[in-house]
Design a protein around this nucleic acid. Structure first.
Lengths: 146, 146
DNA sequence: CACCATTTGACACTAACTGGGAAAAGATAC
DNA sequence: GTATCTTTTCCCAGTTAGTGTCAAATGGTG
């Protein structure tokens, strides 16, 4: 559903431009006009409504305990539904902006069923780490056809 | 009902700003103009009237014994009904402020049927612990759809 | 090179949050 | 019971943050 990597920007008031390609993909598949955004790794993840519903249902179905609590505290509670303005931007709340250190340059990445929103610098670092990991597993990579 | 995470403040007099989003949610669902606040973990928890009633009823229905006493002593007894002032703040009694170490920067977290009020630093620590726990269970997280 | 869609920056306007002063209520000591 | 002090409540005003809109800049395409 979502794929591609885009270097966009977030403005002083915290509005992040979402690439038109992703908005169209959303429109065509689910018809949503908003995304559910939450913390993920060192960045943000944004889900279409139905996907988010599924996640919430599965978390709520977990047996009471530390794992359920941790998910509620770090994933479900901070989440915010963000709708697009006329220019295709979403307003991200301060808490999420701070968490992901979003200030000016951001990277929006399509990850199939979800989007990721990164601070440019952090995305570079995360990518570098992933590349290093793959170099340690050349055989597996070859088998994948890369 | 309640969700989202907000960085607000408590002033020298002990008045804590409750985000407008939560006040509206309250208004729309129960019409309450106050919250029942009590101790919880290392912070405070705030409940709408009806939810608090339910809790009290269930605690009172417990058979007499240490468990019932402990609940009365640590949860029911310290609770205070706090109503909003015209600016959307609640006045927290000194005992609760001290318990949760609320001084200046606070975090107000929506947790479905209740709110949590944290000292900023303590909230960071609590979420960091939860994140660490989730990283130890990547497989489980993937299955949830994150 | 001109055109078009997209992205970004800027502005004004509104709403939300924060801080302070004074009145009211409650507690404490005499 | 009264005086004094502290805490809470009410009200006002300043500051900050968020929203809606417009228009300039950017980049890709014919």
């Amino acid at each position: 559903m979502f794929n591609g990597e885009f270097n966009n920007a977030i403005d002083l008031k915290g509005r992040a431009s979402i690439p038109a390609a992703f908005r169209e993909a959303l429109q065509n598949s689910t018809g949503d006009v908003s995304l559910y955004v939450t913390k993920s790794d060192s960045g943000l993840a944004a889900y279409p409504t139905s996907a988010w519903q599924g996640i919430c249902d599965r978390v709520n179905a977990l047996p009471p305990g530390p794992l359920r609590t941790a998910n509620l505290r770090t994933k479900i509670a901070p989440a915010k539904e963000c709708s697009f303005d006329r220019q295709g931007r979403i307003q991200l709340p301060q808490s999420l902006r701070e968490y992901a250190a979003l200030e000016k340059d951001i990277v929006v990445v399509g990850m199939g069923d979800k989007l990721e929103i990164w601070n440019l610098q952090r995305h570079l670092e995360a990518t570098a780490k992933s590349e290093a990991l793959l170099r340690e597993n050349e055989q597996a990579q070859a088998e994948l056809g890369f």
